[in-house]
Amino acid sequence: MTTATAPAPPLSGRDAYRDELTRLAAEDPAIVCLEADLGGKGHPFQAAHPDRFFNLGIAEGAMIDMAAGLAVAGYKPFVSTFAPFAALRAAESLKLTLGYLAAGVTVVAPYAGVSGAWFGTTHHCLEDLAVLRSIPGVAVAAPYGEQETRAVVRAAAASGQPHYIRTGRNAGYRSLPTEGTELPPVTWEFHGEPGASCLVSVGEEGTRLALEARALRPELAHAHLGYLDHVHLAASAAELAAGHRRFTVIEEHRQEGGAAEALALLLPGCEVVGVNAGHGWPTQGGDHHEVLGQLGLDLPAVLAALPPR
Rank of each mutant, 00 (worst) to 15 (best):
K95D: 09
G99T: 06
L88C: 09
R169S: 00
A86F: 10
T149F: 14
V108R: 11
K95Q: 08
P143D: 07
P110W: 04
A139K: 12
P162Y: 04
C125I: 07
T106S: 15
V153Q: 13
I165S: 08
R169N: 00
P110I: 01
G180N: 02
R174D: 08
A142H: 10
T122C: 14
V138F: 03
A139P: 00
R150P: 01
R166L: 00
R154E: 12
W118T: 12
R174G: 03
V140N: 12
A109Q: 07
T167M: 12
R154P: 09
S115P: 07
R169P: 00
V152T: 13
L94R: 02
G145N: 06
T106V: 10
I135N: 08
A87T: 14
A112C: 08
H123F: 15
H123K: 11
S93Q: 13
T97K: 03
T97E: 00
G99S: 13
Y111H: 12
L132M: 15
A151N: 11
L101V: 03
A155G: 13
S134L: 09
Y100K: 14
L88A: 14
R169L: 00
A158G: 05
T181E: 04
P143R: 12
G180W: 01
T121Q: 13
G137I: 05
H163Y: 14
F119Q: 08
W118A: 15
G137Q: 12
T97N: 01
A87H: 14
Q147C: 03
V152R: 13
L176I: 03
G137P: 13
V114M: 13
I135D: 02
N170Q: 10
G104Q: 04
K95Y: 14
E179V: 11
R169W: 02
I135R: 14
C125L: 07
W118F: 14
T97A: 01
W118S: 07
L126A: 15
A139Q: 08
G172P: 11
Y144C: 11
G104D: 05
E92V: 03
A157P: 08
A117Q: 03
E127S: 05
A158S: 05
G99F: 02
T149I: 07
D128E: 15
L94K: 00
T121E: 15
V114C: 09
A157G: 06
R154H: 01
A112H: 14
T122W: 06
G116N: 09
A151S: 01
R89E: 09
L96P: 00
V138A: 06
A109G: 15
L101D: 09
V153W: 10
V105Y: 03
G172Q: 06
L98A: 13
R150E: 04
V140C: 09
Y173Q: 09
A171T: 02
W118L: 12
T106F: 10
A91Y: 02
L132W: 10
V140M: 10
A157H: 08
A139I: 12
S93I: 05
E179H: 02
V114L: 14
T121S: 12
R174C: 02
P110R: 15
V140K: 13
V131K: 06
V114T: 10
G137A: 09
Y144A: 11
V108E: 00
R169I: 04
R133T: 07
E146C: 13
T167N: 15
S134W: 04
S93P: 06
